[in-house]
């Protein structure tokens, strides 16, 4: 035919950037994921390093999940403000921008971690009391988290890093110096964080799932542990579960955005089965992480 346009052809990585939605759909239709050869319900392998605390910290952890690397260091401080004791997580994502205000992502992750840590009473308040200054001084712990390499949404890895670092944190013995009235800590006698009762455990792990649609078959799929630009950009409906291996929930958020993949925009169909699958899968992931070897 005269004047017929020759079809344009792009290599996959260019096409993924130009038309991420179509790129994602073409994968999902075949039962594949853009981020690689993982099944929809498969998580990436996590490696946990927490043998010896980094210098200057009371406890630390390095977590790598796929290409994401997170470091968390716990340090201590003394405050004189009543009721302000506790654990303060501050998350930084290294992105190569100038020192400036934290990004939206950093603020969201930090706040979420702070809420989760302080909503649960697993950490006994007695940890933060200083002998000899019970009514005037309290211990605060800062968890400073750096995401050194980021390949997608990173709350799960950040949370695992905070939890693992807290599990390995050793609180030094503290006493008030009678002369200076300052709190002096002794690193030769240390104890782990005390938990509020025997059933309490810090083994609470976070798993994030995305809800996607396969346009062609008009069905909803649940995709675990999303990674990469395409998955992050196109899968905006997420379910986040924070659970213990036994299935005790400490956090659950479901955020469903309107569907545009179907073109008819009638909303994403999330059924009871989907949520049950997600909860079971999160529980399985939590027990995997709880028993993962720590090097």
């Amino acid at each position: 035919m005269e004047g017929a346009a020759t079809p344009l052809s792009f290599p996959p990585e260019v096409f993924a950037r130009l038309e991420p939605d179509i790129y994602l759909q073409r994968h999902l239709e075949l039962g594949l994921r853009p981020s690689g050869l993982r099944a929809f319900d498969e998580f990436r392998k996590a490696t946990i390093q927490a043998s010896e605390p980094l210098p200057g910290t009371l406890g630390s952890a390095v977590i790598s999940v796929g290409g994401t690397t997170v470091v968390c260091g716990i340090t201590g401080g003394i405050t004189e403000q009543k009721g302000k004791h506790g654990v303060y997580p501050n998350v930084e994502v290294i992105r190569g921008t100038r020192n400036g205000p934290p990004t939206q992502e950093e603020m969201v992750i930090s706040q979420r971690a702070f809420q989760l840590l302080n909503n649960t009473d697993y950490i006994d308040p007695v940890n933060f009391v200083i002998p000899g200054a019970e009514k005037t001084k309290w211990l605060v712990l800062s968890a400073s988290v750096q995401v050194l390499s980021r390949t997608g949404p990173c709350f799960d890895a950040v949370w695992t890093a905070i939890i693992t670092a807290l599990k390995n944190t050793r609180i030094p013995q503290m006493e008030v110096d009678p002369d200076t009235k300052q709190v002096v800590s002794d690193l030769s006698t240390v104890s782990p964080l005390k938990l509020s009762d025997e059933s309490a455990s810090l083994d609470q792990f976070s798993s994030t799932f995305a809800i996607g649609e396969v346009q062609k078959d008009q069905k909803t799929v649940v995709i675990a542990d999303i990674e990469g630009e395409t998955e992050e950009a196109c899968l905006n409906s997420r379910i986040n579960v924070v659970t213990s291996p036994s299935g005790l929930l400490t956090g659950l958020t479901i955020a469903v955005t309107s569907s545009n993949a179907t073109g008819i925009n009638k909303g994403i169909q999330v059924s009871r089965e989907h949520i049950q699958t997600v909860l079971a899968s999160a529980r399985k992931r939590a027990s995997e992480l709880a028993t993962a070897p720590v090097s």
């Binding site: 934290p102 030094p172 709190v183």
Partner: peptide
């Protein structure tokens, strides 16, 4: 904008 400990916090001093 950051989740930081109270402003009056002083770091732990070690023996």
């Amino acid at each position: 904008r950051r989740v930081l400990p109270p402003v009056d916090t002083i770091p732990l001093q070690f023996k």
